[in-house]
């Protein structure tokens, strides 16, 4: 009996160690990503340095290469801004509706329907942006190019709406009922209760939803690669085509890429900037989310 028990204990320990190892993989992968990006980008910094990155022209594969990241950043910025202009207001309004207005039966049907929007593969959204939304927009804006930032941004916004609305709704639903009841007891309408009681109480949760949405938009690839064209273009006009940090990586890796060449190194430089920007947003969003979870 004693023997069996000791064996059992050893098994328990082994299992716990195995499970811990699986969880440790998350840390290992994070370190693996950061390490690989740094390692592969390092030769670039050693050879070319950091200063050329602030130039206004991005043409790393030309005979006279230019390494200014600004055109890629402007493309990323404009498209992210358009996407957020769509997804933040629409996502927030939908979250308020689902959490404060909708009867529970309507919510049970509408929430899954919205979630289907986020299940559509991004390459399909890219097709939709290029071959449906752009032709549609061209009826109203005749000088719109076949590739443009506007349609990519709008479709990306649509894609992020369910993401924002579900995170924001989670935050609002975790606000205790007593706060709402107090507000209703004072004679407030649903809108007044939502805007003046629920939204302020869920504020850090809402901000975390927006922060995670930014990170999503910055890192989104396929919609941009398909619908926004692939020319680096220092322009803030949404009707222009542009290249983003992500679609540059796609363009380069689509071609034949010798390991260790300068083109190969530049995609890791691009990836490194992407990783650190999204890392900052993700960790910020994570802590904001935890704050509202612990508040009540």
């Amino acid at each position: 009996m004693r023997f069996r028990r000791r064996q059992g204990l050893r098994l328990e320990g082994l299992i716990e160690a195995g499970l811990a190892l699986a969880a440790f993989l998350a840390v290992a992968v994070t370190l693996g990503i950061a390490g690989t990006l740094l390692w592969e980008a390092l030769p670039f910094f050693r050879e070319i340095g950091v200063a050329p990155l602030f130039g206004t022209e991005w043409a790393p594969l030309f005979a006279a290469p230019r390494y200014g990241l600004l055109p890629l950043l402007s493309g990323t910025l404009v498209i992210t801004a358009i996407a957020l202009l769509v997804s933040v207001p629409v996502g927030t309004i939908l979250a308020i509706y689902l959490s404060e207005y909708a009867p529970s039966r309507a919510r049970e049907i509408l929430k899954p329907a919205l979630e289907l929007l986020s299940a559509v593969p991004t390459v399909v959204y890219g097709y939709f942006a290029l071959l449906f939304v752009t032709p549609l927009l061209r009826r109203f804006l005749p000088d719109l190019g076949a590739f443009n930032m506007l349609s990519a941004g709008l479709v990306m916004g649509l894609m992020i709406v369910p993401y924002v609305s579900s995170l924001a709704e989670d935050a609002m639903r975790s606000v205790p009922m007593a706060l709402r009841e107090a507000s209703y007891a004072m004679g407030a309408t649903r809108l007044e209760t939502s805007v003046r009681v629920v939204v302020p109480a869920a504020f850090s949760g809402l901000v975390s939803a927006y922060v995670l949405a930014v990170s999503r938009a910055v890192g989104e690839t396929m919609v941009v690669a398909i619908a926004a064209g692939m020319q680096p273009n220092l322009s803030l006009d949404p009707r222009d085509p542009a290249q983003t940090v992500t679609s540059y990586i796609v363009q380069v890796t689509l071609g034949d890429l010798p390991h260790g060449s300068i083109g190969y190194q530049t995609i890791f430089v691009a990836g490194l900037s992407l990783f650190f920007v999204t890392l900052a947003f993700n960790i910020g969003g994570h802590f904001l989310r935890r704050r509202y979870r612990e508040a009540y």
Binding site: A26, V29, T30, I33, L37, L212, S215, R216, V218, G219, E220, T221, T246, I249, V250, G271, L274, F275, T278, L279, F281, N282, I283, G285, H286
Partner: peptide
């Protein structure tokens, strides 16, 4: 963080 790292990374 892993859940939010862009897929292309």
């Amino acid at each position: 963080n892993l859940a939010g790292v862009p897929s292309i990374v």
